[in-house]
Design a protein around this nucleic acid. Structure first.
Lengths: 325, 325
DNA sequence: CTGAAAGCGCTAACAT
DNA sequence: ATGTTAGCGCTTTCAG
């Protein structure tokens, strides 16, 4: 493989002149420039980015930490991140963690090792305090409320949005309300759980563990939820489902079993994914794509301006009224 | 940031000894080793991967080229790739191309610039001949039949699988068969189209452009397909749909409009995604995850063994009979 | 406008 | 077992 020295020799100039041309710097005579371009073409020269990364201490690479890849929520977020990264000529390293600490640490270490210039955390299991020390190596932004941490954050007020969803259900006359969550740890889930419990309290309803469904991520999990529901003698009349995919699965299985939505079972989904529209699902839009874009913009901004003060950006939610409540 | 020199000085050894410890090479005395570890800890030292990449001419990074990220087909493929990459301690750079040539070229150039050690092409619009010269810079594997190109390939015989699907429809008594494709260019789509036309020919049916639906990728595209169908005076009685998501959208909208599946309209999907099971959709499994895994394994193998002969791996399809035909 | 030279942080012969 | 040294391929002062 040709390197800058070969070009310099073939074009009869010094390597610094070649470097100037490579970086379109001014003050190079046209004939030398031409000679260099010719040499580049002749030797099929391309720069070795690793050398550039080394000397610049920067890779134009941002790491994206997510538990799993094949999941509508993260795909949507990623879509937003990717769109913005594209504009800035940044590439993304997709780091699947399976919510395992060692994998999450590996991503943070990549930042320290200068493999990546920043990190976007889509979701994590590691406590925030363990992440914070790494902010000195580059910008880190989490897609959840971090509450004044040195880690930046783009987030939605999940407590309020959830409360809003439940109140909507209550207004429609529901008292028996169940809940499907992705996982019970995690800042977002915790906020939602608290909103749920507070709302239940406000209408004097007990918290029933049997109406809680965890680990609901995909459409097929929804099927399972409905089948669990069917075995109960007392069922909730409404369900808050933190994923439109899961909600869709519930609706499909409900139909199959003659349970009418919303008459027998009302459902509110979350995320306002395309599937929600197809299912005419009432859902809460939480602007995943916009959050993704914003997360990247914050990371990029901090890299560009070399600033280290964290930024926090709260997003609005919106109830999309359709036919499942 | 501390570097290897600082460690050497603090531990009172030479940089090569430090390097040995860093790479767990033998022949370092225990006390020096300890001194080095202490220094590393004290200075919070981590290796600079860019220097290592430069000197080794290798990054442990594989680029994944795909048109869009938020799409079930590619997510599934990616899941397989990611699982395998994880085992080998490789990271993935996700390169979204939107099927634009300049973006596809950018990925190939990254290989030439030694930013990545290999490439997995999930789908592309660039002609193969334009890709082939890049194989000298590292292994490239495409997820489609490349027919003896120097580019490696993992693929499914889409012609045969499609033919199989159509024949199944014909056996069930269908003569009027429509087709939903992702795009009309692309090796996979072309094979499918040919199979479709050949099958039509074999039952003496004309090819009708109005029963062809292109650009069908997502569940909402299925809704649109069905609505187009409704405006036709003569409709197909069966549809081959190259995506379970699209098929699901069709089914949803059919139900809404009192069109019975499979009586009024039979449907075969493709990919055997989870949504297919929930919809009880007859589909053709084409082992996307396995293909993804295999694609990575080929790339990795070729990197490890420094071999350059391309590998081709054909996968089997399987008709999953459910209730939509 | 151009070139020489110093380094970015590391690995890997080669000596000892 | 350990140290010396020569690079990997590039950018960037600094001189001229």
């Amino acid at each position: 493989m040709a390197n800058i020295k070969h070009i310099a020799k073939l074009a009869n100039v010094s390597i610094s002149t070649v470097s100037r041309v490579l970086n379109n710097q001014p003050y190079v005579s046209e004939d030398k420039k031409k000679a260099i371009f010719d040499a580049i073409e002749q030797l099929e020269y391309t720069r070795n980015m690793n050398a550039i990364h080394l000397i610049k201490g920067k890779t134009n690479l941002v790491g994206v930490m997510m538990p799993f890849i094949n999941h509508a929520y993260f795909s949507r977020l990623m879509e937003g991140i990717s769109a913005e990264a594209f504009k800035e000529n940044y590439q993304l390293i997709l780091c699947q963690t399976n919510y395992e600490l060692c994998n999450e640490t590996a991503v943070l270490e990549m930042l320290k090792m200068k493999q990546i210039d920043g990190i976007i955390i889509c979701s994590k299991s590691m406590p925030l305090e363990q992440i914070e020390p790494y902010t000195r190596y580059g910008p880190i932004v989490a897609c959840e409320d971090v509450n004044q941490s040195p880690v930046s954050s783009v987030y939605l007020d999940h407590y309020t949005s959830f409360k809003y969803g439940i109140n909507y259900l209550i207004e429609k006359g529901h008292q028996y309300i169940g809940l499907c969550l992705g996982r019970n740890s995690g800042a977002n889930s915790q906020s939602r759980l608290k909103a749920y419990k507070d709302a239940l309290h406000s209408i004097n309803q007990p918290f029933r563990e049997e109406w809680m469904f965890y680990q609901s991520y995909r459409i097929e999990d929804g099927v399972e939820v409905l089948n669990k529901l069917r075995t109960m003698e007392q069922r909730p009349t409404a369900l808050l489902v933190t994923s439109d995919q899961v909600a869709a699965g519930i609706i499909m299985e409900a139909r199959k079993n003659g349970i009418e939505v919303p008459n027998d079972l009302a459902i509110i989904g979350f995320d306002n994914q395309p599937i929600a529209e197809v299912f005419d699902l009432t859902t809460i839009d939480n602007q995943l794509m916009e959050m993704g874009s914003c997360a990247f913009r914050i990371v990029h901004d901090q890299i560009a301006k070399k600033k280290t003060e964290p930024e926090y950006r709260e997003f609005d939610f919106r109830l999309i009224e359709r036919s499942t409540v």
